[in-house]
Computed example of a mutant assay.
Amino acid sequence: MSGTARRLFFIITGTTRGLGRSLAAAALDQAGSRVVGFSRAAPFLKNDRQQNVSIDLNDTDAIAAAFDQIAVDRQENADLAHSVLINNAGVLDPIAPVADCDDRLLAENIRVNLTAPLLLTRHFFHFAKGLPGRKWIVNITSGASQAPYPGWAAYGAAKAGLDLATRTMALEFASIDPAFAVCAVAPGTVDTDMQARIRRCSHQQFPQVDKFIDLKANGGLTPPFQAARRLIKSLLAGRFENGGRYDLRTMHPA
């Protein structure tokens, strides 16, 4: 994605706080960029560069309508170079052995972490296919997709499913429309409200809680703005490939 000045369009989920908020800020720092957030915050349109569409991604029936609310003049986007969907929004709860979990929370975890990104990708494809330039879907994944964490069965299963869906969709896009590409990015242990939620767990809920308490105490958490800038810079520098899975901790800023 390197090159001269270009217009950039981003849709980022979960921009109210944490990594999503920092991703939106990092995207807005790019010249010629426009950012649409999908979050629970109130809707707004600011300076023709930033918009929020209010949506609860647990309500998957609302996703199609959310794309209809995006204020976009397709004629003005004739020089658009890149359109990007970042599926960042996620939930960790319930944190407990499956036998002790609430039915509703288990179902909501899979809806937000796996079902919603698949639906968002589907609707982004139809939204962006008429736009010029390259199109990217970036799925935020986790180390929990590759190793079991007792107490995180739903979260780990959803992220593992998202990893495989990423690889599958990459094959599909290569066949049906090579202008689209998709990758998965694990940001590492980022200092967000989710980490604070983990540290409040009991050992019965999450036996590995001490590991995360120590990470916070010893400065082992990455600031959200640092992870966000690294991700956006790596994406725009062309360091991601269709179908790839990346760990931001092993990538250097472009």
Rank of each mutant, 00 (worst) to 15 (best):
V182Q: 00
R104A: 14
P132W: 11
S142G: 13
A147C: 10
G133K: 06
T166E: 03
R104T: 14
N113P: 04
A179D: 15
F124M: 02
A153D: 00
N113A: 08
T192S: 12
F173E: 08
A160C: 11
T121F: 04
A154M: 07
H126C: 02
S175K: 15
A99V: 05
P117D: 03
F180I: 00
F127M: 11
V182N: 06
S145V: 11
A184D: 04
S142E: 10
V112T: 06
F173N: 09
K159H: 09
D103Q: 05
G151F: 04
L119M: 14
T121I: 08
P97H: 06
T192N: 08
D191K: 11
H126R: 14
N113D: 09
P132A: 06
V190W: 10
P97M: 00
T168K: 07
G151D: 04
L171P: 04
P117L: 06
A107N: 07
A144H: 09
K159E: 08
D102W: 09
G143T: 13
R104P: 03
P97W: 02
A116C: 09
A157T: 14
W136M: 12
R134P: 03
A158K: 06
L119A: 06
M169F: 09
C101H: 07
A116I: 00
G151M: 06
R134Q: 15
R167N: 07
L118V: 11
K135F: 08
Y155T: 06
I110C: 07
E172L: 10
H126G: 07
R167E: 10
F125M: 04
V182F: 00
F180S: 00
T189M: 10
D102H: 08
P117K: 10
G161N: 04
I137Q: 02
A107M: 04
T168S: 15
R104I: 03
G133D: 12
G161M: 05
G188Q: 10
R167C: 01
T115A: 11
A170K: 02
V138Y: 05
R134V: 10
L114Q: 05
H123F: 11
